[in-house]
Simulated scan of single mutants.
Amino acid sequence: MFRQVKQDIQAISERDPAAKSIVEIIFCYPGLHALIAHRFAHYLFKKKMVLLPRLISQTSRFFTGIEIHPGAKIGQGLFIDHGMGVVIGETAEIGNNVTIYQGVTLGGTGKEKGKRHPTIGNNVFIGSGAKILGSVKIGDNVKIGAGSVVTKPVPGNTTVVGIPGKVVVQHGVPMKELQLRTKNICNKEIRVEEMPDPDQETLLYLVRRVEMLEKKLAEKES
């Protein structure tokens, strides 16, 4: 466990330009504090203990804002930057040298039993607010854009963005050139980028939802 913690500290030192010293990392990085608590809780969890590891996990959540279930399997060199709002489920598995930003969820869909959380490969980058849900496998060297929602397996050496997550770069090569298309919004043709944009997709969903509600309201009034 101590060797893993040492590698976690080294990962922060190498990947965060804001880290000025080892002492600063040890005392001022909640992601590291949450990881240390998890390493110990996971050790107890593997010893078939239940309550104590959960208490450690909940206490760590209170102080760091990061919730990691004791059953989650985490490799070496994980860097949780900022960390507030990060949730890692019981059957999640994380490889080596993974970077996770604030607001990330490695969760389930609420439908499965057994293995119900994601498996993350090595050298994966997960942007802030991204949600990876279900028992899906994320390959090595994957980048997941901020705000993306991923519910399907992702092959290695790719970049995924959008809601739902779509592969836009594979092995460093764009899947296709950025194109423009038109969408009908409120009876107006608006040109939007083909590349998925989480904010754009959310706004489009809200517009469609409002239109549907207005239609139902009009039908009731008539």
Rank of each mutant, 00 (worst) to 15 (best):
G108R: 05
G108N: 05
G108K: 03
T109N: 12
G110W: 04
K111R: 15
K111S: 13
K111D: 10
K115T: 10
R116P: 10
R116H: 10
P118M: 06
T119P: 03
T119S: 15
T119G: 02
G121I: 01
N122H: 15
N123Y: 10
N123D: 15
F125W: 12
I126S: 07
G127D: 03
G127C: 04
A130N: 01
L133P: 04
L133C: 08
L133F: 12
V136C: 06
I138N: 02
G139F: 10
G139W: 09
D140P: 09
N141F: 07
V142S: 07
K143F: 08
K143P: 09
A146R: 06
A146C: 11
G147Y: 02
G147V: 09
V149E: 04
V150D: 00
V150N: 02
T151S: 02
P153R: 01
P153A: 07
P153H: 10
V154R: 07
P155T: 05
G156C: 02
G156K: 13
G156L: 09
T158Q: 01
T158N: 04
T158M: 02
T159M: 12
T159Q: 04
V160R: 00
V161F: 06
G162R: 00
G162F: 03
I163W: 02
P164F: 01
G165Q: 04
G165F: 01
K166T: 06
V167K: 08
V167D: 00
V168F: 06
Q170F: 06
G172P: 03
G172Y: 00
V173L: 11
V173P: 03
P174L: 09
K176R: 14
E177D: 14
E177S: 14
L178M: 12
Q179R: 14
Q179M: 14
Q179L: 08
L180V: 06
R181Y: 11
R181V: 09
T182Q: 15
K183G: 03
K183W: 11
E189Q: 15
I190P: 05
V192W: 04
P196F: 07
D199R: 09
T202V: 12
T202F: 12
T202R: 14
L203T: 11
L204T: 05
Y205G: 02
L206W: 15
L206Y: 14
L206N: 10
V207W: 10
V207P: 01
R208N: 15
